[in-house]
Simulated assay, not measured.
Amino acid sequence: MFAPLVNDCFLRACLRQPTPHTPMWLMRQAGRYLPEYCATRAKAGSFMGLATNVDYATEVTLQPLERYPLDAAILFSDILTVPDAMGLGLSFQQGEGPKFARIVRDEAAVAELAVPDMAKLRYVFDAVTSIRRALNGRVPLIGFSGSPWTLACYMVEGGGSDDYRQVKSLMYSRPDLMHRILEINADAVAAYLNAQIDAGAQAVMVFDSWGGVLADGAFQTFSLAYTRRVVAQLQREKDGQRIPVIVFTKGGGLWLQEIADCGADVVGLDWTVNLGRARAAVGDRVALQGNLDPNVLFAPPAAVQAEAIQVLDSFGRPQRADGGWDGHIFNLGHGISQFTPPDHVAALVEAVHRHSRTLRA
């Protein structure tokens, strides 16, 4: 039902196979830095109006690909769709970020939680299929979800947080309740990602955006263990094709070795990690994704290109001395800022493709 892939460079890099250049895409590549996105969002009336409308979600997912020769598309959605489907009432206030009408902080609220009926997320799966068809084989489509821990942070805090006081208080005072939340979240995320794969996603990514706020020990117990539970449940092949899984923990460089053993095909890195040392540490276990500081994109285009080259040189030539390949997908170390000049992104993409080809020459 879908067109064959023209550019499979991203998928090949995920699986540590030879590629003619280093593939790249950007976290939040369909977003507020693009004037055409802002125009579409204005038509939609709200963020959720945009995300829940299949035609709008398809339109904004493809917008960055019309500007830049990126090597992958990522579904336009939000990491908090799963707890919204649990009945927590997600909304977005302009300039305030996500908010939940119901918060989960006590036994009664936890007792009401359950893996949601995936039919409540049909708008997401319909968007995946629509986007995949609209891509017409141009590049692969990535589906995604927030990690169990990251979802729990928002569910307990009721929104974003500067200190994670509520979620950490619950974690330390009632670990039994926290584990119950995380068990439900993990099973829900796995079902959600599997449904995206069934709808047409060719790779999936777990965003552990807030794993890095945890102490050593707590990260392994309350974040990584449940990311591993998600990965273990995912279907890894569809229609004879391998479905790569990417895990990204912002602030997770300290635990790189443990994350690399969670079962994913690719580990995403933020900008605090040296790519060359990370490559040496993980060996041939996983491919790596990252890891330019998003704020580099505020520098002049020539400086952006120089920094991109430095990232590529840090990883080095992807072919090893033994003839094998180590996969690298170029990305930012976190999401692109809404204030990024679009022409600076064009300079970045050009430099990554050009220089990565010279590394293979």
Score class of each variant (00 low, 15 high):
Met1Asn: 13
Phe2Ile: 05
Pro4Ser: 13
Asp8Pro: 04
Leu11Ser: 02
Leu15Phe: 02
Leu15Ser: 12
Gln17Gly: 03
Gln17Ser: 05
Thr22Gln: 06
Pro23Thr: 14
Pro23Trp: 14
Met24Val: 12
Leu26Gln: 09
Met27Asn: 05
Ala30Asn: 10
Ala30Ile: 10
Cys38Asn: 15
Ala44Gly: 02
Ser46Trp: 04
Met48Asn: 08
Asn53Ser: 15
Asp55Trp: 00
Thr61Tyr: 03
Leu62Tyr: 08
Pro64Gly: 06
Pro64Lys: 04
Leu65Gln: 08
Leu65Glu: 11
Leu65Asn: 09
Glu66Tyr: 03
Glu66Ser: 15
Arg67Asn: 10
Tyr68Ile: 07
Leu70Tyr: 04
Leu75Lys: 04
Leu75Asp: 01
Phe76Gln: 07
Ser77Gly: 00
Leu80Tyr: 12
Thr81Trp: 03
Val82Gln: 11
Asp84Ala: 09
Met86Asp: 10
Met86Gln: 15
Leu88Val: 05
Ser91Cys: 12
Ser91Ala: 13
Gln94Ser: 11
Gly95Cys: 10
Gly97Lys: 07
Gly97Tyr: 02
Arg105Ala: 05
Ala108Gly: 14
Ala109Val: 01
Glu112Leu: 14
Leu121Met: 12
Tyr123Glu: 09
Ala127Thr: 06
Arg133Lys: 14
Arg138Leu: 13
Gly143Arg: 04
Gly146Tyr: 12
Trp149Thr: 09
Cys153Tyr: 05
Gly158Cys: 08
Gly158Lys: 11
Asp163Val: 10
Asp163Met: 08
Leu170Cys: 01
Leu170Lys: 05
Tyr172Gln: 08
Met178Ser: 08
Met178Gln: 04
His179Leu: 06
Arg180Val: 02
Leu182Tyr: 14
Ile184Gly: 00
Asn185Glu: 13
Asn185Tyr: 06
Ala186Arg: 01
Asp187Lys: 14
Asp187Ala: 03
Val189Met: 01
Leu193Lys: 04
Gln202Val: 07
Val204Asp: 01
Asp208Leu: 12
Ser209Asp: 09
Ser209Pro: 03
Trp210Lys: 05
Gly211Glu: 05
Gly211His: 13
Gly212Pro: 02
Ala218Leu: 03
Ala218Cys: 01
Gln220His: 15
Phe222Ala: 05
Ala225Asn: 02
Arg228Val: 07
Val230Leu: 03
Val231Ser: 13
Leu234Gly: 14
Leu234Arg: 06
Gln235His: 11
Glu237Gln: 14
Pro244Cys: 11
Ile246Met: 06
Val247Tyr: 15
Phe248Thr: 10
Gly251His: 01
Leu254Ala: 15
Trp255Val: 08
Trp255Met: 06
Ala260Trp: 02
Asp261Glu: 15
Asp261Thr: 06
Ala264His: 08
Asp265Asn: 14
Val266Tyr: 12
Val267Met: 05
Val267Lys: 04
Asp270Phe: 03
Thr272Ile: 01
Val273Pro: 02
Asn274Phe: 00
Leu275Cys: 08
Arg277Pro: 03
Arg277His: 13
Arg279Thr: 06
Ala281Lys: 13
Val282Met: 00
Ala287Gly: 15
Asn291Leu: 11
Asp293Asn: 04
Phe298Val: 04
Val304Tyr: 09
Val311Phe: 02
Gly316Ala: 10
Gly316Glu: 12
Ala321Ile: 10
Ala321Gly: 04
Gly323Pro: 02
Trp325Gly: 13
His328Met: 15
Asn331Phe: 11
Gly333Tyr: 09
Gly335Ile: 06
Ile336Gly: 12
Ser337Pro: 03
Gln338Ser: 12
Ala347Arg: 05
His353Gly: 06
Thr358Trp: 06
Ala361Phe: 08
